[in-house]
C-alpha cells in the first residue's frame, strides 16, 4: 500500500535530515535538500513504487542531491576550509559539559573528513546499514564502502584520541 507524503515524512525525515546535515554541514542547505527530496517524491511517486527499500531509496536520492549541491557550492565559493571549521550542531545538545565537548569535537572531526567517508560512516553508525546496503545506496562497490569506512574511522579515532582517550 502506498504511503502518504505525511507518513513518508514522519517515517524518514529525521534520518534524511541527520544524513543531509552531516553531509552539507549547513542547516539552510539541509532544509532545501530535504524539501527537494519530498517534492521529487511528490512529483514522481512511481519512483518510490519501484524501490525495494523506501529508506534506502530516499537516502540515495538525498545523497545525490547533496552531492550536486556540494559540487555547485565548491565551484562557486571554494570555501572548503571555512566550511570544515564551521562545525554546525549536527548532534543533540547535551546537558553534561563533558558530553557536550565530546559531541562538538565529534562534529568537528566529522567535518574534516572527505564527504565520501563521512557519508559511509554516517550510514554505518547512525543508520546501521551493512557495507552492501551502503554500497547500493551510494552507488559504489562494497569494498570501497568498507575501505572508506576504515579510513574515516581511523581518522576520527586519531582526531578524538585526546577526548575519547579511554576508548580504543
Amino acid at each position: 500500500m502506498r504511503e502518504s507524503l505525511e507518513e513518508l515524512y514522519d517515517g524518514h525525515a529525521q534520518a534524511l535530515f541527520a544524513f543531509l546535515l552531516n553531509l552539507t554541514r549547513n542547516e539552510a542547505d539541509t532544509r532545501d535538500l530535504l524539501q527537494e527530496v519530498f517534492c521529487k517524491i511528490a512529483r514522481r511517486r512511481d519512483l518510490l513504487d519501484d524501490a525495494r527499500d523506501t529508506r534506502a531509496f530516499l537516502l540515495r536520492t538525498a545523497h545525490n542531491l547533496a552531492l550536486d549541491l556540494i559540487r555547485r557550492r565548491a565551484a562557486r565559493e571554494r570555501k572548503h576550509d571555512a566550511l570544515a571549521g564551521e562545525s554546525p550542531a549536527v548532534f543533540e545538545p547535551a546537558d553534561d559539559l563533558d558530553e557536550r565537548r565530546c559531541r562538538e569535537a565529534l562534529a568537528a572531526a566529522l567535518a574534516e573528513l572527505p564527504e565520501e567517508q563521512r557519508a559511509v560512516i554516517h550510514l554505518k553508525l547512525w543508520e546501521g546499514l551493512t557495507f552492501e546496503a551502503i554500497a547500493e545506496t551510494l552507488g559504489i562497490p562494497p569494498n570501497t564502502a568498507a575501505s572508506r569506512y576504515r579510513y574515516g574511522i581511523d581518522k576520527l579515532r586519531e582526531r578524538l584520541r585526546p577526548i575519547y582517550g579511554e576508548l580504543r
Binding site: 532544509r31 524539501q35 519530498f38 565529534l106 553508525l125 576520527l156
Partner: peptide, 21 residues
C-alpha cells in the same frame, strides 16, 4: 560514536516541506 544522538529535525519544517511537496 554511534550512541551520539543526531540533532532532531526542526518540527516547524514539517508543515512547510509537506506544503511545498
Amino acid at each position: 560514536i554511534a550512541e551520539t544522538p543526531p540533532r532532531r529535525v526542526p518540527a516547524a519544517w514539517r508543515q512547510d516541506i509537506l506544503a511545498a511537496a
